[in-house]
Amino acid sequence: MQTCGQCGEENAIVEDSENGRTFSVCTECGFVVKEEQILTDAVNFEGTTQTHGLGQVCFNAPNSIKRKHYEPQGRKDGHKLIEERGLGLNYRPDMIQTAIYFFDHLYKVIKHSAFEMKTTAAHCSLYVVGRQNGIPVTIRDFKSQQGERKRIHNFFSCLQMLKKDFNLTIPNIELEEQTTSILSKAELPSNVICLTQRILDVAKTAWINSGRHPRAIIIAAASIAWKADNSLNANESLLTFCRQYKFECGSNVKKRYKEIHDMLLTLMKRIPWITSQKIVRITNIPFYIEDILKYHKSLMVTVSQTSYSAAEEKIGAVKAEVNNESDFLPPSMKRVKKERNESLTDPIINTDRIDENEIDQYIRTDNEVKELQKYLSLQECKIERLDTFIK
């Protein structure tokens, strides 16, 4: 007979068991007199726990309890990436939540894909939200985070899925917004960025940006502005500029650089106080950039008038000069179409001069002519046989 050590009551101690433990409890005061662990296989008990000085360890808890607060690691990583990148891009909290919502929608489809696909889905969600809210982000802003170039098609797959499922349209970014975004990230001075904008305004008037990748035009114009801003940089090359500010210097950038240079040189040749003093050279452009930009509208009119008058008069020397200068027309109007000489290779057939036995060869195909000759030869053989039989 046990006596409660708390209240001293006798015959009030009862035994009970729960989750693999036995208890001796006083029914009067509730004091636990004795507690023991049943040393049996833990598989027979759901939710059985033991403490070994390292915290609580769960044995064979039901799947419903295990998965109650479980979140897939890929989804957690995607949310974390969106939050970190969103803060780096100065996204508002509501924009970050919208990007997470888009990512969760994509995750239902790509949850069994590789980790790189989930990362791409997070970047795509950020891209869509940024463009929808007027932030001039480009795919290139997330491309460096994606790794290999061949994975870019995954980005477009996610983008098409979001556009289709949510009926989204991605607004275009104006050239001015892209210029500020691209050059600010390269930490170019503000005065160089402003001068680049002015050069791009002239380039737009001359249709140089028509159908061209804006980034290449921006880098080319920025290199000219960088040269004009500081006389020490006037003789530096495009490659030096790109290396200093970590821009790519591919073939497109070089082509746009030459086009803008040729346009500025053409305008500079029309400035009287420059042409009257010295020979106009392409290396003089950085020193006279302000005059070119200030009077570019009137200079373009002068170039156009010269082009039209030369085309009308067709004077040899002037015509040669015009061919070397740009008319500042859209690319579609500059393309020279090849003249087609539609001469008939087959002369018209005069049936009056053709023998009746040969006319069939002109109105039938080669196979038909062969079949006809074969048929006629067979008929001749039959006639010959019939003649011999009669005789």
Rank of each mutant, 00 (worst) to 15 (best):
K254T: 01
K334W: 10
K319Y: 13
G20M: 00
R151G: 00
G86M: 01
T180W: 08
Y101R: 14
D262V: 07
L175K: 01
E371A: 15
Q132P: 14
F31G: 05
I82E: 10
I274S: 12
N167V: 11
P214K: 06
K163D: 09
V280C: 13
L293H: 05
I354Y: 07
Q146V: 01
E342Y: 06
F102T: 11
F142G: 07
G250A: 09
G20N: 02
A234G: 04
S343H: 08
R140H: 06
S223L: 02
I282T: 14
H52F: 04
M117V: 14
M268H: 02
P171G: 04
L89M: 09
E83N: 15
E10D: 11
D355K: 15
E380H: 10
Q277N: 14
D327F: 10
V25I: 05
S17T: 14
V57R: 12
A122P: 01
P347R: 01
F102K: 10
S210M: 01
D360Y: 13
Q305R: 02
I199Y: 09
S210A: 03
G147D: 00
R131M: 02
N233W: 05
S326W: 02
I363F: 05
K80V: 10
R140N: 05
D41Y: 06
C26I: 06
Q97I: 12
P62W: 00
E371F: 13
R131A: 03
I224G: 08
H52G: 09
Q2I: 12
S24R: 15
T351E: 13
A12P: 01
E187M: 04
L54R: 12
S64F: 11
K108F: 03
N209Y: 06
S190W: 15
I279P: 15
E358T: 03
F59N: 12
I282A: 13
V25E: 04
L200T: 09
A12H: 10
Q305M: 03
K150S: 08
Y70Q: 09
P72K: 09
V137Q: 02
M263R: 07
Y70I: 01
L239W: 04
